[in-house]
Nucleic acid binder design. Structure first.
Length: 198
DNA sequence: TAGAGGATTGAT
DNA sequence: TCAATCCTCTAC
């Protein structure tokens, strides 16, 4: 079952980030479906320094974050990687959830091909890697997440509170005290969660 | 309009 | 530990 606008347009971005765990992110390109279960997310809000839209700073890049919940926000990081976010909340409130890792469900062979990997392990364990595996690039920026090319669906998995781990977000040391917010959510003991040196 | 740096990754 | 790589944002 596809997630609808109501799911994305709620007020609490951290709650949506938690609830996205266990949901399925998929793309269909040239007739091939690829995707998997979301096992790691991070919440971002205009209220804190880690966010591109901190203090409602609106630029050409982050404009989509100010749009309605249920849109894709895709941007280039380090000149190399496309990072995929889900825009949440209502028009004018810049919040989003970064999808950081998936557990493959469908199209594993195609994802291996796209990432140039010969093994099927950890091909979607990281925000830059999963976009490459699913074929997501900036052309998807601003697209709705209920299309035939890109969507998130409820796979029926029930995630209990005690299966979710909250920790500080990755790679935003410049955000000062806000870098310590426990807004990174992972499934406990899931081997597909991204590896970090932190 | 130039210059610095980034919500990462994989190889050394 | 470090380079790849290019777009975005800020300052001048």
């Amino acid at each position: 079952m596809l997630l609808t606008e109501d799911f994305y347009r709620r007020r609490s971005v951290t709650r949506i980030a938690r609830e996205l765990l266990g949901k399925g992110l998929f793309t269909k390109i040239s007739g091939v479906t690829t995707g998997g279960t979301i096992v790691e997310t991070e919440a971002y809000s205009w209220k804190e320094k880690g966010c591109h839209a901190y203090q409602n700073r609106k630029t050409a890049r982050n404009e989509v974050m100010f749009g309605n919940g249920g849109l894709a926000y895709v941007y280039l990081c380090y000149g190399i990687h496309n990072l995929f976010n889900v825009v949440t909340n209502k028009i004018g409130t810049a919040e989003a959830v970064l999808i950081r890792a998936l557990q493959p469900v469908e199209g594993t062979l195609e994802m291996m091909k796209r990432t140039g990997s010969t093994k099927d392990n950890r091909i979607t364990s990281g925000p830059g890697k999963l976009t490459k595996a699913l074929g997501i690039d900036r052309e998807s920026n601003g697209n709705i997440l209920q299309s035939e090319k890109l969507w998130i669906e409820d796979l029926g998995a029930v995630i209990r509170k005690n299966e979710i781990l909250a920790s500080p977000r990755i790679g935003i040391g410049y955000a000062g005290a806000d870098a310590l917010l426990p807004w990174r959510f992972t499934l406990k003991n899931n081997s597909w969660v991204s590896k970090t040196s932190y």
